[in-house]
Computed example of a mutant assay.
Amino acid sequence: MSGGPRFRYYKAGMSRQITPVNLAGWIALTVWAVALVLMIWGISVSLRGLQDPIYRAGAVIGCSLLSMIWLVGGVLWMKARSEIIDADALYDRQKAKNGEGKR
């Protein structure tokens, strides 16, 4: 669609944030989120037909694992297509620059 990164990945201490940058990023995020919602909804609808508690528990565990794999995979996919901004490194650079200017 357009050139450049689709997302920005901000790192600051323990905080992490991925944000869509352009239309391609927003479309990718929307498709990913809609697929997640449809996957969970489909599994929850199919759970209604299961009467045995063991099958139900297995299906819930399977749904949870599948959701976690989808979430982690989506975050890693977005991170790979991100411009990474390290706020700590920027702060250190600014601090060093200001320290050099005072001497």
Rank of each mutant, 00 (worst) to 15 (best):
R16N: 10
I43Y: 03
A12I: 07
N98G: 15
P20F: 07
S2C: 01
G4W: 03
R103E: 14
I27P: 01
I84Y: 04
S15A: 09
G25C: 05
V37A: 12
L50V: 08
M1D: 07
R81T: 01
E83G: 03
Y10W: 08
A24K: 11
V37W: 11
I54P: 00
I85D: 04
L90G: 15
R6F: 05
L23W: 06
M78Y: 00
K95V: 03
A80M: 10
G74R: 02
L66N: 02
I18T: 01
L50Y: 01
R56E: 05
I54A: 13
M68D: 03
I40N: 12
L71E: 04
V34C: 04
G49Q: 05
G99N: 15
I61A: 13
N22T: 06
I69R: 05
Q17W: 02
Y9I: 01
A35E: 14
D86Q: 06
A28Q: 11
D88K: 02
K79W: 11
A89I: 12
A59Q: 04
I84Q: 12
G73C: 00
I69G: 06
V60F: 06
V34D: 10
V21E: 12
A59H: 01
T19W: 01
G62R: 02
V31T: 09
I69W: 11
G42W: 06
N22R: 06
G73F: 00
I54M: 07
G58H: 00
S67G: 14
R81Q: 11
L38T: 05
S46V: 04
A33H: 12
S67H: 03
M39C: 04
Y9Q: 02
L71A: 14
T30G: 10
A89V: 13
Q94K: 14
L71H: 13
I84W: 09
T19S: 10
Q51I: 09
T30P: 02
A12Q: 07
L36R: 05
A87F: 14
L50G: 00
M78Q: 03
G25T: 05
V60D: 07
V60Q: 12
E100R: 15
G4E: 08
S46T: 08
V31E: 11
Y55T: 02
G73P: 00
V37E: 10
R103Q: 15
F7S: 03
R93S: 15
Q51A: 13
W70T: 09
K97G: 03
R8P: 03
F7E: 05
L38W: 09
R93Q: 15
W41K: 12
C63M: 15
D86L: 05
I85L: 13
Q94F: 12
A89N: 13
S2E: 14
